[in-house]
Each structure stands twice: as C-alpha cells, then as structure tokens.
Design a binder for these strands. Sequence first.
RNA 1: GGCGGGUUGGCCGAGUGGCUUAGGCAAGGGCCUGCAAAGCCCUGUACGCGGGUUCGAUUCCCGCACCCGCCUCCA
Length: 471
Amino acid sequence: MALRLYDTVTRTVRDFVPLEPGRVGIYLCGLTVQAGPHIGHLRSGVNYDVLRRWLAHSGYEVRFIRNITDIDDRILATSIQAGRPFWAIAYANERILSAAYDALGVLPPTYEPRATGHVPEMLELITALLADGHAYQAEDGSGDVYFDVKSYADYGALSGQRPEAMQAAPDGPERAKRDPRDFALWKGPKPDEPPDAYWPSPWGRGRPGWHIECSAMCQRYLGAEFDIHGGGLDLVFPHHENEIAQSRAAGLGFARYWVHHGLLNFGETKMSKSLGNVLDLDGVVALGVRPVELRYYLIAPHYRSRIDYSDEALREAGAAYRRLEGFVQRAAERVGAGEPGVLCAEFVEAMDDDLNTSRALGIVHDVVREGNSALAADRDDTVRGALGSVRAMLGVLGVDPLDPQWTFKEPGAELHDAVDELVLIALRQRDEARARKDYAAADAVRDGLKQAGILVEDTPHGPRWTIGGRP
RNA sequence: GGCGGGUUGGCCGAGUGGCUUAGGCAAGGGCCUGCAAAGCCCUGUACGCGGGUUCGAUUCCCGCACCCGCCUCCA
C-alpha cells in the first residue's frame, strides 16, 4: 500500500499520486515572523517534517519549500511600536524560529524563501491578473490592487464557502474595493507606516498583499503545478482559498493536494500571538521537558487532531518517550547501537494511512516491549532486531534517541566519560560493600550518587547509571 | 447567520458494525532484586444524550446538548 493523504479539497483520504514519478514538491506556509514561535507553530514544522521524512523514506526525492513571511501588517505594527526597522524584527524572529526548529530536529527545508525577496515574481503575477481582468486598480488613488473574486468562478471550492453567503469584511471607509470579498494583491503606501516598507511597482510604491507571496514562491520553486500544499487549518480560508484563486486565475495548475494540520489549543482557545496565551520552546524547557520530548508530544496525536495543551499531557509524553529511550539505550549497551533496521509492516501501514503517527507509535511501543523481554531473557539476536527496528521507526518520526541530533547536543555531554570514571570508582566501593553484605554502606553509596543526580540500577550484567533517569 | 471539526475508560490518545484488541501515563497485584530502580506479567473500565437502521452500533442515519476552528490577522 502506498501513501494515502487527507485532501481538504475532496475532504477524503485519497491515494497520493505524484505529478512526476519518484518526485514530490511540497510547499508549506511558514510563519509570519513578527514574534518568535510558540509550540503551536512548532507543531506545524514538526508535522510536515514527519511527512517529508516519510516521503523520503518511501523513496521519493522531496523538494520541500517552507516560506518566511517577513513583511505584513503585524510586522509593521510591531516595528512602529518598537521603533525598530521591520526587517530587523523579522530577521531576529526568523533566527529564533530556525533555532527552535533545529532544537526539535526539524530538518531544514530544501529552500526557505522570504516574501521580500520575491517582489518581482509577485509583480509579474499581478500584472498577468490585471491583464486578464482578474484584478483591478483601486479608483481612489490609493495605489491598491485587488483581486476580483467574482471573476473566478470556483472561488470557495477549498473552504466550502459560498461568496454570497460570507459575512462581509468590515473594511469600512478605507480603500476602494468593488466587492467586500475582494482581497489586496498590492497595497499602496499609508502615511503611518514605515517608509522603508515599500517597493516600486507599475502602480506606484507599495507592498505586497499577504496571499500573493505564496503563489509567487510556489511557482518559482515548484513550478506551475506541484504536489502538496500545506499549512494550518486556520489558513484554509481566506489565505489558501485566495492563493488558489489568484494562481488558477493566472493559469497555473497549482497544488494537487491540500494538507492541513490541526491547531494547538491552550486552555479554552487556540494558542495565538494576538491573544497572548503562548508557550514557547524556552517555556517547555523550563518545565523540565526536553525538546525531543516536546517533539514526541507533538507527533503522538494524529496531525489533524486538535491538541488541547496541558502541562500534564506534555509530561506524560515525556515519560512515554523515556520508556522508548530507555530500551534503546539499554539495548545499545548490550548489543551495540548497530544501524537502523527494518520497519514493521504495521508501522508502514499506519504511516501510509494518512500519517497515523499515533498508531505508528503504538507499534513502536509493542516492539519495545518485546525487546525488553528479550533483554531480560538474554536473547541478544532478538534484542538486536528489535533495536534496529525501533531505531528505524523512531528515525522516520525524527525521535531516534541515538540520532546525533539528540546525542551530541545534551549539555555537558563531553563530561560523560569523566563522570563515568568517577561513578565507576564509587560503584566498585558499593560492590565491595555488597559482597560483604554491608547493605547500609552499599545503599549509602547509591544514595550519595542519587543526591548528585545519578541513578544506579542493577542488571544481571552489572550496574548501570543514568543522569536524572535519562540515558 | 454561513462553512467545517469534535465529544472514547482516572488522564492523554488511536480505532472499529460483531471478532483479541490500540498504545502510553497514572493506579493496584505479582515476578525479578539484599533493598531499590528498570523491565516483564496480570487487573480495572470507555465510547456525550435521545431516537432510528440492523440479528447486532462506540462505529452508519436523524435529532439534541456541549465544545472548538474558520468566515477579520493567524500554524
């Protein structure tokens, strides 16, 4: 069975058939960088990272484009408020975003285009839309250019909205739209906005509307027609509807599959910068949860499910991950790390079924249980097989504990060998005490190590130690 | 008002017309251990409410309640 994906257009799970055999082009609407990312944003990056890894593992050559929106109303508002150039704010936040993605093991996209770097492509697209009568210049001298929604018959096909039934946007007195549903392709200058936020155009100085950038960048990097376009559920309307309208109206085939992920709620409502109820990566780390555990938390539910965030659920995910990690670590100590092995057929089936990571992780836990039993029974061949399989499956999900992504970045990792020597000295004393059945002395050593955050466990193959319960 | 999604055992979270059912966390019992820890085994129980279809529904249909998202910036 090959991959099946839920497509928002058809509202069904359907077979994924690429435009070109063996290749996949994906465009993911990235973030508007008027602030750093919260964990809801990071869910988006992680979800698509899993899709991308799964496609790559399935043998596809993946071209994955994830944009950065570095010019828009909110960035300009932040700029005015902070008294700093909008581009400085956007860039600083872009760096924070990249660092967060790195910390979560989100692979860099094939390319990460910025909106401001693609104004010429946007102008070209807008020019074509004007020429074909799909767009018009505002007659109030504002310099705005709008897309004429009535000129595109299929408007609303993605979101199921009927233009005539839609609530009219309260645009009020500003600007001259012919129809309230029309949306800006190009925005003329406004007196209260930073003067460096504008580019020359055939219609005077101005800046792009929000939607046109994605159409332009899709075309530039993925061509007129491409496989998958993704983003959060909240982008279905109007953003993606508008992208489709302007791209198709311009004669482009555009996206063949629309994949939208569920949002992350915080308390009663979605986590949102504008509502101020945000938790970011630093906040998660402050709770004592490692980035890899956050990643596990974000992929444990299906990508289309809503996540109602809670500290408790996050910590539970950490505990669940540590169970997997513990097996991998103990198995590697016994039989060597080896190489990632074969995926379970059921795992493949789950992933092919619209990326059912939840079920896939259930399979991994099953294999870990078998592996743990084999470990206890000294069936090393079985341990080796389970370890390879578990590592391969966790690798696809981006959470293989032995991936250098996670092993090389633990703070103080370089001290590990030194600590190991010191702990071994203590453990030798403990062994001597145990040999003469002086358990008080033996336990004193273990308690002392525990005070230092080092947990000692006895195994049939001798004692092993971990820091804070983590391998 | 329009469009869409949801309501699963103590918690998180998959899934399915009946069959063995996820899986994890937490809890209790057991095995192992000098004691622990880890691990393994066992236990518990669920499908919002009311109808309908069916031999049989948590799963399909209808209605109701509640929750959430979008229609305005939003991952």
